[in-house]
Amino acid sequence: MNTCVQTLVSPSAAPAVASDGSARRLPGDLAIWFFILAELLAFGAFFLAYAFARANNVELFNEQQLALDRNAGALNTILLLTSSYLVVRAVQAAEAGQSRRAATWIAGGFACGAGFVVVKLFEYVAKFAAGVSLSSSTFHMFYLILTFFHFMHVILGLVILAALWNGARKGRYGPGNMNGIETGAAYWHMVDLVWLILFPLVYVMR
Protein backbone atom coordinates (compact mmCIF):
# COMPACT_ATOMS: atom_id res chain seq x y z
CA MET A 1 0.00 0.00 0.00
CA ASN A 2 2.89 2.33 0.72
CA THR A 3 4.13 1.93 -2.80
CA CYS A 4 0.65 2.72 -3.98
CA VAL A 5 0.44 5.87 -1.89
CA GLN A 6 3.87 6.99 -2.94
CA THR A 7 3.09 6.49 -6.59
CA LEU A 8 -0.16 8.37 -6.38
CA VAL A 9 0.94 11.33 -4.28
CA SER A 10 4.51 11.72 -5.40
CA PRO A 11 5.44 15.42 -5.58
CA SER A 12 5.82 15.23 -9.33
CA ALA A 13 2.18 14.19 -9.64
CA ALA A 14 0.29 17.18 -8.30
CA PRO A 15 1.31 20.03 -10.62
CA ALA A 16 0.59 18.06 -13.79
CA VAL A 17 -3.03 17.65 -12.81
CA ALA A 18 -3.62 21.08 -11.37
CA SER A 19 -2.06 23.18 -14.07
CA ASP A 20 -2.53 21.17 -17.24
CA GLY A 21 -6.03 21.56 -18.61
CA SER A 22 -5.33 19.06 -21.36
CA ALA A 23 -4.98 16.36 -18.71
CA ARG A 24 -8.79 16.27 -18.44
CA ARG A 25 -9.83 12.77 -19.37
CA LEU A 26 -13.03 10.76 -19.24
CA PRO A 27 -12.28 7.43 -17.47
CA GLY A 28 -13.15 4.25 -19.34
CA ASP A 29 -15.10 3.85 -22.55
CA LEU A 30 -17.08 6.81 -23.89
CA ALA A 31 -19.95 4.39 -24.57
CA ILE A 32 -20.42 3.49 -20.89
CA TRP A 33 -20.94 7.17 -20.08
CA PHE A 34 -23.74 7.47 -22.62
CA PHE A 35 -25.21 4.29 -21.14
CA ILE A 36 -24.88 5.76 -17.63
CA LEU A 37 -26.64 8.95 -18.75
CA ALA A 38 -29.49 6.87 -20.18
CA GLU A 39 -29.73 4.93 -16.91
CA LEU A 40 -29.76 8.14 -14.87
CA LEU A 41 -32.61 9.46 -17.01
CA ALA A 42 -34.59 6.22 -16.54
CA PHE A 43 -34.07 6.24 -12.77
CA GLY A 44 -34.84 9.96 -12.68
CA ALA A 45 -38.17 9.34 -14.44
CA PHE A 46 -39.03 6.63 -11.89
CA PHE A 47 -38.08 8.87 -8.96
CA LEU A 48 -40.25 11.70 -10.22
CA ALA A 49 -43.16 9.36 -10.96
CA TYR A 50 -42.91 8.21 -7.33
CA ALA A 51 -42.61 11.75 -5.96
CA PHE A 52 -45.60 13.11 -7.89
CA ALA A 53 -47.74 10.01 -7.23
CA ARG A 54 -46.95 10.54 -3.55
CA ALA A 55 -48.07 14.19 -3.82
CA ASN A 56 -51.58 12.92 -4.60
CA ASN A 57 -51.57 10.20 -1.91
CA VAL A 58 -49.53 11.67 0.93
CA GLU A 59 -51.38 9.91 3.74
CA LEU A 60 -51.22 6.48 2.10
CA PHE A 61 -47.51 6.85 1.28
CA ASN A 62 -46.64 8.10 4.77
CA GLU A 63 -48.56 5.31 6.44
CA GLN A 64 -47.18 2.46 4.36
CA GLN A 65 -43.66 3.86 4.39
CA LEU A 66 -43.64 3.32 8.16
CA ALA A 67 -43.73 -0.44 7.54
CA LEU A 68 -40.52 -0.35 5.47
CA ASP A 69 -37.37 -1.66 7.11
CA ARG A 70 -35.24 1.50 7.37
CA ASN A 71 -32.46 -0.43 9.08
CA ALA A 72 -32.20 -2.71 6.05
CA GLY A 73 -32.29 0.31 3.76
CA ALA A 74 -29.52 2.08 5.68
CA LEU A 75 -27.44 -1.09 5.92
CA ASN A 76 -27.74 -1.50 2.16
CA THR A 77 -26.67 2.11 1.64
CA ILE A 78 -23.57 1.43 3.73
CA LEU A 79 -22.86 -1.79 1.81
CA LEU A 80 -23.10 -0.03 -1.57
CA LEU A 81 -20.97 2.93 -0.44
CA THR A 82 -18.35 0.60 0.98
CA SER A 83 -18.40 -1.48 -2.18
CA SER A 84 -17.90 1.67 -4.27
CA TYR A 85 -14.99 2.66 -2.03
CA LEU A 86 -13.34 -0.74 -2.41
CA VAL A 87 -13.72 -0.53 -6.19
CA VAL A 88 -12.08 2.92 -6.15
CA ARG A 89 -9.18 1.35 -4.24
CA ALA A 90 -9.04 -1.37 -6.91
CA VAL A 91 -8.83 1.22 -9.68
CA GLN A 92 -6.11 3.08 -7.76
CA ALA A 93 -4.17 -0.16 -7.29
CA ALA A 94 -4.42 -0.90 -11.02
CA GLU A 95 -3.31 2.64 -11.78
CA ALA A 96 -0.26 1.99 -9.59
CA GLY A 97 0.50 -1.16 -11.58
CA GLN A 98 -0.73 -3.59 -8.91
CA SER A 99 -3.33 -5.57 -10.81
CA ARG A 100 -3.41 -8.53 -8.43
CA ARG A 101 -3.88 -6.25 -5.46
CA ALA A 102 -6.71 -4.67 -7.45
CA ALA A 103 -8.30 -8.14 -7.66
CA THR A 104 -8.38 -8.33 -3.86
CA TRP A 105 -10.09 -4.94 -3.59
CA ILE A 106 -12.60 -5.96 -6.25
CA ALA A 107 -13.36 -9.16 -4.35
CA GLY A 108 -14.16 -7.00 -1.30
CA GLY A 109 -16.40 -4.79 -3.42
CA PHE A 110 -18.16 -7.88 -4.80
CA ALA A 111 -18.73 -9.22 -1.26
CA CYS A 112 -20.40 -5.95 -0.20
CA GLY A 113 -22.55 -5.96 -3.35
CA ALA A 114 -23.54 -9.56 -2.64
CA GLY A 115 -24.38 -8.47 0.91
CA PHE A 116 -26.76 -5.88 -0.56
CA VAL A 117 -28.49 -8.64 -2.54
CA VAL A 118 -28.90 -10.83 0.55
CA VAL A 119 -30.31 -7.97 2.67
CA LYS A 120 -32.69 -7.00 -0.14
CA LEU A 121 -33.92 -10.57 -0.56
CA PHE A 122 -34.67 -10.82 3.18
CA GLU A 123 -36.55 -7.54 2.89
CA TYR A 124 -38.58 -8.79 -0.09
CA VAL A 125 -39.41 -12.08 1.65
CA ALA A 126 -40.66 -10.19 4.72
CA LYS A 127 -42.76 -7.90 2.51
CA PHE A 128 -44.26 -10.74 0.49
CA ALA A 129 -45.03 -12.63 3.72
CA ALA A 130 -46.89 -9.51 4.90
CA GLY A 131 -49.06 -9.64 1.78
CA VAL A 132 -47.34 -6.85 -0.13
CA SER A 133 -47.64 -7.15 -3.90
CA LEU A 134 -47.56 -4.96 -7.00
CA SER A 135 -51.32 -4.59 -6.78
CA SER A 136 -51.72 -4.18 -3.00
CA SER A 137 -51.35 -0.38 -3.17
CA THR A 138 -49.90 2.46 -5.26
CA PHE A 139 -47.12 2.81 -2.70
CA HIS A 140 -46.23 -0.88 -2.81
CA MET A 141 -46.28 -0.86 -6.61
CA PHE A 142 -43.74 1.97 -6.65
CA TYR A 143 -41.69 0.48 -3.83
CA LEU A 144 -41.43 -2.89 -5.58
CA ILE A 145 -40.83 -1.54 -9.10
CA LEU A 146 -38.26 1.06 -8.02
CA THR A 147 -36.29 -1.23 -5.73
CA PHE A 148 -36.47 -4.21 -8.09
CA PHE A 149 -35.35 -2.11 -11.07
CA HIS A 150 -32.38 -1.07 -8.94
CA PHE A 151 -31.87 -4.64 -7.67
CA MET A 152 -31.44 -5.87 -11.26
CA HIS A 153 -28.77 -3.24 -11.80
CA VAL A 154 -26.93 -4.50 -8.73
CA ILE A 155 -27.04 -8.04 -10.17
CA LEU A 156 -25.59 -6.81 -13.49
CA GLY A 157 -22.98 -4.83 -11.55
CA LEU A 158 -21.93 -7.98 -9.71
CA VAL A 159 -21.48 -9.81 -13.01
CA ILE A 160 -19.28 -6.92 -14.19
CA LEU A 161 -17.28 -6.97 -10.94
CA ALA A 162 -16.75 -10.72 -11.33
CA ALA A 163 -15.37 -10.12 -14.84
CA LEU A 164 -13.10 -7.34 -13.55
CA TRP A 165 -11.88 -9.57 -10.71
CA ASN A 166 -11.02 -12.27 -13.21
CA GLY A 167 -9.12 -9.81 -15.40
CA ALA A 168 -7.31 -8.20 -12.48
CA ARG A 169 -6.33 -11.60 -11.07
CA LYS A 170 -4.63 -12.36 -14.39
CA GLY A 171 -2.71 -9.08 -14.18
CA ARG A 172 -4.63 -7.52 -17.06
CA TYR A 173 -4.91 -3.98 -15.66
CA GLY A 174 -2.15 -1.44 -15.19
CA PRO A 175 -1.26 2.17 -15.90
CA GLY A 176 -1.20 1.43 -19.63
CA ASN A 177 -4.46 -0.54 -19.62
CA MET A 178 -7.07 1.06 -17.41
CA ASN A 179 -9.96 1.05 -19.85
CA GLY A 180 -11.75 -2.12 -18.73
CA ILE A 181 -11.53 -1.56 -15.00
CA GLU A 182 -12.48 2.14 -15.29
CA THR A 183 -15.47 1.28 -17.45
CA GLY A 184 -16.78 -1.38 -15.06
CA ALA A 185 -16.11 0.81 -12.01
CA ALA A 186 -18.05 3.72 -13.55
CA TYR A 187 -21.11 1.49 -13.99
CA TRP A 188 -20.85 0.24 -10.39
CA HIS A 189 -20.65 3.80 -9.01
CA MET A 190 -23.77 4.69 -11.01
CA VAL A 191 -25.65 1.86 -9.24
CA ASP A 192 -24.52 3.38 -5.93
CA LEU A 193 -25.39 6.93 -7.02
CA VAL A 194 -29.05 6.21 -7.81
CA TRP A 195 -29.49 4.35 -4.50
CA LEU A 196 -28.33 7.52 -2.70
CA ILE A 197 -31.53 9.19 -3.93
CA LEU A 198 -33.76 6.13 -3.72
CA PHE A 199 -33.08 5.56 -0.01
CA PRO A 200 -34.14 8.99 1.34
CA LEU A 201 -36.94 9.27 -1.23
CA VAL A 202 -38.67 5.95 -0.55
CA TYR A 203 -37.56 5.02 2.98
CA VAL A 204 -37.28 8.34 4.80
CA MET A 205 -39.03 11.30 3.13
CA ARG A 206 -42.38 12.03 4.80
Binding site: V5, T7, S10, A13, V91, P175, M178
Partner: peptide, 9 residues
Protein backbone atom coordinates in the same frame (compact mmCIF):
# COMPACT_ATOMS: atom_id res chain seq x y z
CA UNK B 1 0.37 7.09 -13.61
CA UNK B 2 3.81 8.21 -12.57
CA UNK B 3 3.00 11.71 -13.77
CA UNK B 4 -0.41 12.07 -12.26
CA UNK B 5 -3.33 10.11 -10.93
CA UNK B 6 -6.81 10.28 -12.41
CA UNK B 7 -8.31 8.58 -9.37
CA UNK B 8 -6.95 10.51 -6.41
CA UNK B 9 -5.14 9.02 -3.46
Amino acid sequence: ALHHSDHGT
